[in-house]
Amino acid sequence: MQRVNMIMAESPGLITICLLGYLLSAECTVFLDHENANKILNRPKRYNSGKLEEFVQGNLERECMEEKCSFEEAREVFENTERTTEFWKQYVDGDQCESNPCLNGGSCKDDINSYECWCPFGFEGKNCELDVTCNIKNGRCEQFCKNSADNKVVCSCTEGYRLAENQKSCEPAVPFPCGRVSVSQTSKLTRAETVFPDVDYVNSTEAETILDNITQSTQSFNDFTRVVGGEDAKPGQFPWQVVLNGKVDAFCGGSIVNEKWIVTAAHCVETGVKITVVAGEHNIEETEHTEQKRNVIRIIPHHNYNAAINKYNHDIALLELDEPLVLNSYVTPICIADKEYTNIFLKFGSGYVSGWGRVFHKGRSALVLQYLRVPLVDRATCLRSTKFTIYNNMFCAGFHEGGRDSCQGDSGGPHVTEVEGTSFLTGIISWGEECAMKGKYGIYTKVSRYVNWIKEKTKLT
Results as ranks from 00 to 15, higher is better:
N5V: 15
E10K: 15
L19D: 02
L23H: 03
C28I: 02
F31I: 15
H34L: 06
N36Y: 04
A37H: 12
K39Q: 09
L41I: 11
R43T: 13
R43L: 08
N59L: 05
S70N: 13
E72T: 07
E79R: 12
E82Y: 06
E82H: 06
R83D: 09
T85N: 08
T85G: 10
E98A: 09
S99R: 09
P101C: 00
L103P: 01
G105E: 04
K109M: 08
D110M: 09
I112F: 14
N113C: 03
W118H: 01
E124G: 04
C141H: 00
E142P: 03
Q143R: 00
F144E: 00
K152H: 08
V153Q: 08
C157I: 01
C170S: 01
A173F: 09
A173D: 11
G179C: 01
G179V: 00
S182N: 10
V183H: 06
V183Q: 13
S184N: 14
S204Q: 05
L211V: 14
I214E: 13
T215N: 09
Q216H: 13
Q216I: 06
T218R: 10
F221H: 13
F224Q: 06
T225C: 05
G229Q: 12
G230I: 15
D232A: 14
K234G: 10
W240D: 00
N245W: 06
G246V: 05
D249L: 08
F251D: 03
G253E: 04
T271E: 14
G272H: 12
G272D: 09
G272M: 07
K274L: 06
I275W: 06
V277L: 03
V278N: 04
A279F: 02
H282M: 09
K293L: 12
R298G: 05
N304I: 03
Y305D: 01
A307R: 12
Y312E: 02
N313F: 08
N313K: 11
I316P: 00
D322V: 03
L327P: 04
S329T: 12
C335W: 00
E340R: 12
E340K: 07
I344H: 15
F348R: 09
W356D: 02
V359C: 07
G363W: 05
R364Q: 09
Y371T: 13
P375A: 14
V377L: 10
T381E: 08
C382Y: 02
Y391W: 10
Y391P: 15
F395S: 02
G398T: 03
D410F: 11
T417W: 00
E420V: 09
I429Y: 13
I429K: 14
W431H: 12
G439A: 04
T445R: 00
K446G: 09
S448V: 03
L460Y: 14
